[in-house]
Computed example of a mutant assay.
Amino acid sequence: MLRSAATYPEVMRRELSRLRSNATIEVINSGRVGDTIPNNVARFGRDVFAHTPDLVIWQLGTNDVAWGGRPDHGLKRSVLEGVRALKAESADVVLMDLQYAPQVLASVGYSTMEDIIIDVAKQERVGLFSRFALMRNSVSAGVAQSALVTWDGLHNTADGYDCIGRALARAISTSAR
């Protein structure tokens, strides 16, 4: 198990604080291990809206496909419902797509889930951070997948989280200009 200081939300917070030294940056990680999109949406009131966030980064879809789920129109409706609920609370939204990991790549529905996330981001005009493309491009450039993904074939290593956290912070900082 990684220390919280090594997870992408904490890396992102540190990098944003470095990039935006005059800003007050607070990151609340409301993610839950093993959670799915419907469960995320069900927890928004308690775990997200209660904090009145300015920005919500919704990491979604990996668990929905990694454990044999098959994305369908019902799941797309759940993503739309979730994004609309976040926007109704006046939060800016960034959708973070799937992990590029062996367990995801072995799933039947990962490309459909990717399409759902991309479509919803476009339709609802919210940000999209493609962790999938970032990791795929890193592996294509010669980074060993084992440097980014742990032994379980799903979760990121500390280096994988560091890469994602820094890239996400830079994307947020650039967008905020």
Rank of each mutant, 00 (worst) to 15 (best):
A5R: 14
A5Q: 15
R13N: 10
R13Q: 14
R14D: 09
R14V: 12
R18N: 11
R20G: 08
R20T: 09
N22L: 11
A23S: 13
I25R: 06
V27Q: 07
G31L: 10
R32V: 14
V33G: 11
V33L: 13
N39E: 15
D47T: 10
D47L: 09
F49D: 02
F49T: 10
T52I: 09
D54G: 11
I57C: 08
Q59Y: 01
Q59H: 14
G61D: 05
N63W: 05
D64Q: 07
D64R: 06
D64A: 10
G69A: 05
D72W: 05
H73C: 01
H73K: 09
K76G: 02
S78D: 14
S78F: 09
L80K: 07
G82R: 02
K87P: 12
E89R: 14
E89Y: 08
A91L: 12
D97S: 09
D97P: 04
D97Q: 08
L98H: 03
S107E: 05
E114L: 13
I116E: 04
I116R: 03
I116K: 01
I116P: 03
I116F: 01
I117N: 11
A121M: 02
K122N: 11
K122Q: 13
Q123D: 13
R125P: 02
F129Q: 05
S130D: 06
F132P: 04
N137Y: 09
N137M: 03
S138D: 06
V143L: 12
A147W: 00
V149T: 14
T150Y: 00
D152T: 00
A158N: 11
A158C: 04
A158D: 13
D162R: 07
C163M: 15
I164Y: 04
L168W: 03
L168N: 06
R170H: 10
A171I: 01
S175W: 10
A176F: 11
